[in-house]
Computed example of a mutant assay.
Amino acid sequence: MPDRVAIVTGAARGIGAATAQRLAQDGLRVAVLDLEESAAESTADAIGGLAIGADVSDAAAVDAAVARVTKELGAPTVLVNNAGITRDNLLFKMSEVDWDAVMGVHLKGAFLMTRAVQKHMVDAGWGRIVNLSSTSALGNRGQANYSTAKAGVQGFTKTLALELGRFGITANCVAPGFIVSDMTKATAERIGVEWDQYVRDRAAAIPVQRAGQVEDIANAVSFFVDERAGFVSGQVIYVAGGPKV
């Protein structure tokens, strides 16, 4: 692969950190973006990347972050929109603040980051956009905000593929199933189930009989970013251990 620069959002830990590490192994220079720069430093240091602090739901912060990446690493032509939060609750208990916060990070964040980076991809005549959705996009109790945001990410991805394909840019979506992460630990805490039991219960319902790991998602992202995946665009791949999600 030619010398490419990637930005991975929400990359201080979990899926984002694993993805940043995998892309660095694939030979890309990686900017590790998270809300706080200090949180991103350990991931960045481990891969020789650049730690960036930015709120992806803030347009000025996004533009400044992309400008810094361009100055310090080079023009980014790979973008992984991974940043996400959960504010789970049943519909009648869900506040507007919790709805807006989830929409702001997942949907507005993906929009702002993509808008800021696509100009570099167009100039290069090549680009890879990978957005993180979820099996929750199909509906999930207690996650009206998160499910809606993740379904929106899929529509956003397909529209990007249509608009940007003629510039040599692909846009695809990875939708994880149950992954062992801080986010799923928070879900177990919310519903009052002991973590180890929660993992066992979830794994038992998965055809491959195991919980997903962050590396499983990083590997799928790596496929979409690869030079050889240039004829794959507008797709959603469910990385969930089976067809039943």
Rank of each mutant, 00 (worst) to 15 (best):
N82Y: 14
T77S: 12
R68T: 14
D88H: 12
K71F: 02
D55S: 14
D58P: 01
I47H: 12
D63S: 11
A46K: 13
G84E: 04
V80T: 03
I85G: 03
N89P: 00
R68I: 01
D45F: 00
L79T: 01
D58Y: 12
A83Q: 08
A75V: 11
A60S: 14
V80R: 10
T43H: 09
K71P: 00
G74E: 12
L73S: 05
A61T: 00
V69N: 03
A67Y: 05
A51Y: 03
G48K: 08
K71E: 15
E72A: 08
D88R: 15
R87Y: 06
L79W: 07
D88C: 08
S38V: 12
L73D: 06
F92V: 04
N81K: 10
N82D: 09
N82H: 09
A39P: 00
D45N: 12
V78T: 09
G49W: 09
A75P: 05
A60P: 00
G49C: 06
A40Q: 04
A67F: 05
F92R: 13
E72F: 10
A51I: 10
T77W: 13
L90C: 00
R87T: 03
A75M: 02
V62P: 03
A61K: 11
T77R: 05
R68E: 15
I85F: 03
V78C: 11
N81S: 14
V66G: 02
F92W: 07
L90V: 11
A59R: 15
G84I: 04
A40M: 05
A67T: 09
T70M: 02
L73E: 07
V69H: 02
R87P: 00
R87V: 04
A64K: 11
V78N: 12
L50Q: 03
S42A: 14
D63C: 00
D63F: 01
G48S: 04
A61M: 07
A54L: 04
L91A: 10
G84K: 13
V69M: 12
L79Y: 10
A51T: 08
A60Q: 14
L79H: 06
A39E: 11
E72S: 07
A83T: 04
I85D: 00
V80Y: 14
V69F: 11
E41T: 10
T86K: 09
V66N: 04
D45S: 13
N89D: 15
I52N: 00
G48I: 03
L79G: 01
G74C: 12
T77Q: 09
S38T: 09
V69A: 07
D58R: 14
R68K: 14
S57T: 00
I47Q: 13
D45L: 03
G48V: 01
L90R: 07
P76M: 12
